[in-house]
């Protein structure tokens, strides 16, 4: 009885802020502007401007997820190697920027990357050619990697930290070199963390509209931008909800992947 009572506030929260809003999105997604059931809002994803945006979003978020993984794995191994005391200080330094507003940090990148920005002033000082990536997909990928990298590092670090040193030593005793240990021992054991990290980076990258607006000069339309525009500019909540539901399919697919590989819940970030 006591335990059930404790779950009460949580249940209320879930119903009020997850179940009801989701139901409303489903309702809006399957009704037209004049009311009445329709599949048009969901089917609208097939329109060239929408499907192009979705494909581009998928491509950019995959690229940024791979970049994050390549950057994060070695870092997580270094962190593990440092031992608890020093390692956690580095983790702290790493998380520190996250205390600042996400929007501000992305705007700072604008100032850095602009044509007359900080980086180009620096390059110009040494007579080096200017960096022209502002308002291109490359700037968006950079923004995604910068903002979401901690979400890749932390779950991988959490899993690596739990791997017993004896396991590694045993591999060395049995004659495995570093790369064999990495591929046969480290990586398979850290897979839950890797999968969790991939999901944590892929999902927000896929849905972002702020990064593409700020670093893409509104020239590059991602599926997040399309949905945002339907809600804030076109005022067509039905279309926006319909497209959100299509996007949810992709998010759920990656969640299912997570559930399959991470049964023990080891890869959770916090």
């Amino acid at each position: 009885m006591g335990k059930k009572l404790l779950a009460g506030p949580y249940l209320l929260w879930m119903v009020a802020f997850t179940v009801i809003p989701l139901a409303l999105i489903v309702y809006y997604g399957f009704t037209g502007v004049g009311g009445g059931f329709t599949l048009a809002n969901v089917a609208a994803i097939a329109r060239p401007e929408h499907s192009k945006a979705l494909v581009l979003s998928l491509a950019l978020s995959m690229v940024s997820t791979v970049c994050c993984l390549v950057l994060a794995y070695p870092l997580a191994m270094v962190l593990r190697g440092r031992g608890i005391g020093k390692g956690s200080f580095i983790v702290f330094i790493f998380i520190l920027p996250m205390w600042m507003n996400f929007l501000l940090r992305t705007m700072a990148w604008q100032t850095l990357l602009e044509k007359n920005g900080v980086i180009n002033a620096f390059l110009g000082f040494f007579g080096l050619p200017k960096l022209q990536i502002m308002n291109t997909p490359a700037a968006i990928v950079l923004g995604m990697v910068y903002n979401f990298l901690p979400f890749m590092v932390l779950p991988i670090y959490n899993v690596l930290a739990k791997i017993d040193d004896d396991t590694i030593n045993a591999a060395a005793d049995l004659g495995a070199n570093f790369f064999q240990t990495l591929l046969r021992v480290w990586f398979p054991l850290s897979l839950p963390g890797v999968i969790s990290g991939i999901t944590m980076v892929f999902v927000p990258s896929l849905t972002t509209f702020v990064i593409s607006n700020l670093l893409g000069g509104s020239k590059i339309l991602l599926i997040g931008n399309v949905i945002e525009q339907e809600f804030t500019k076109s005022g067509n909540w039905h279309m926006g909800s319909g497209l959100s539901m299509v996007l949810m399919v992709f998010i759920m697919a990656s969640m299912l992947l997570l559930a399959k590989y991470d049964r023990g819940g080891e890869g959770t970030t916090f």
Partner: peptide, 14 residues
């Protein structure tokens, strides 16, 4: 309004 907020959250977290 809550629905809009959540829809935006779904579509971008911010």
């Amino acid at each position: 309004a809550v629905a809009a907020a959540v829809a935006l959250a779904v579509s971008g977290l911010v």
